[in-house]
């Protein structure tokens, strides 16, 4: 690997393993994770529940120590120089809260002091961030009065209080309404434009799809795929069934029979808007479908080949069927 590549990696993980000790049955959460995320990149970290996403992100945030392997954040080894790593990262945990009996502003000022930001600098930074996350008016309220969405926004502000270069976000939009999800999406876009590296763990695939340029999929403690979003889609497209959605009048049983006889077509389903045809991976059957429908005088309003989505890719790579 070129020296420049090494220097440009914001996060590098090699052979990362984590075993949680337990009296009867230790749990292997990570079985050798390898990752490399370039500076300024937005990395979407996907995986089913219990796959090891949060464990990985906590190790990168220096909260957990790995059992084996190595991890560097901003060029600093998480074990040898955790304080340097903590200076560089802004960590937003999934299920954390601030101090409920303190106001939002006091929470931010406390986190600022722990990052060595004090005095008027801390107050200005807190005020500006509260405005950024839309909590300006609630700044003086105790956190225990905040809604789930407000707490999430405060956590984001806490992660940003020291203007870190690398953001580790664990389910930032989890449990939020569409407005909240959009807010976080816009915020992350803004951070990317400022050159920040974003490590985003999420269950909301559309959020990752719209926010991240690179994704990694983890399952049972092992990385299943790490690539650019487009490349992942293409890989999935090569192996996933080809599907064509047709908006049309309901075809007769004989027309459906003819459609099923088209080479490489596997299934034909009725949908409220017309039909959905599934064919073998890579097959281009749209023209033949059009011909059969026109021949049988079925009125066609629209015909759309399905592009594989990130969800398809996710499910396909994890061994599930596309929806």
């Amino acid at each position: 690997m070129a020296r420049d590549d090494l220097a440009s990696a914001a996060i590098r993980v090699q052979g990362l393993k984590k075993r949680y000790a337990a009296f009867r049955k230790p749990l292997d959460a990570l079985l050798g994770v390898d990752l490399e995320i370039a500076r300024g990149d937005a990395f979407g970290f996907l995986g089913p529940n219990g796959a090891g996403k949060t464990t990985t992100i906590r190790i990168l945030a220096t909260i957990l120590s790995p059992t084996a392997g190595s991890a560097e954040v901003g060029g600093h080894d998480i074990r040898e120089d955790p304080m340097a790593v903590r200076s560089l990262i802004g960590y937003m945990p999934e299920n954390a809260g601030g101090y409920p009996l303190m106001t939002g502003q006091d929470n931010l000022l406390y986190w600022a002091r722990l990052q060595d930001i004090t005095g008027s600098g801390a107050r200005e930074r807190a005020k500006s961030l509260l405005a950024t996350v839309g909590l300006e008016e609630a700044a003086g309220q105790k956190v225990k009065t905040y809604s789930h969405g407000m707490k999430k926004r405060l956590l984001m502000a806490s992660a940003l209080i020291h203007d870190p270069d690398i953001l580790l976000l664990d389910e930032p939009a989890g449990g939020l309404d569409p407005q909240g999800i959009r807010f976080f999406r816009d915020l992350i876009h803004g951070l990317r434009q400022k050159g920040k590296t974003v490590f985003l763990s999420s269950h909301i695939l559309s959020e990752v799809e719209q926010t991240c340029s690179t994704i990694g999929i983890i399952q049972k403690g092992r990385m299943v795929a790490v690539d650019r979003v487009e490349a992942i889609r293409q890989r999935v497209g090569a192996v996933a069934p080809a599907r064509v959605e047709v908006d049309c009048d309901p075809p007769s049983a004989s027309t459906v029979q003819l459609l099923r006889q088209i080479p490489k077509v596997r299934m034909v389903w009725s949908t409220p808007a017309g039909i959905l045809v599934e064919a073998e991976p890579g097959a281009d059957v749209a023209d033949e479908i059009t011909r059969v429908l026109v021949t049988d005088h079925v009125r066609i309003r629209a015909i759309r080949p399905f592009e594989p989505t990130l969800e398809d890719a996710f499910l396909s790579l994890l061994g599930g069927a596309p929806s």
Binding site: A61, I63, M83, R86, I89, P93, A96, G97
Partner: peptide
């Protein structure tokens, strides 16, 4: 309350 996680990731 989750603040320990935040605390451990600070300087």
């Amino acid at each position: 309350q989750g603040s320990l996680e935040l605390l451990l990731s600070r300087r």
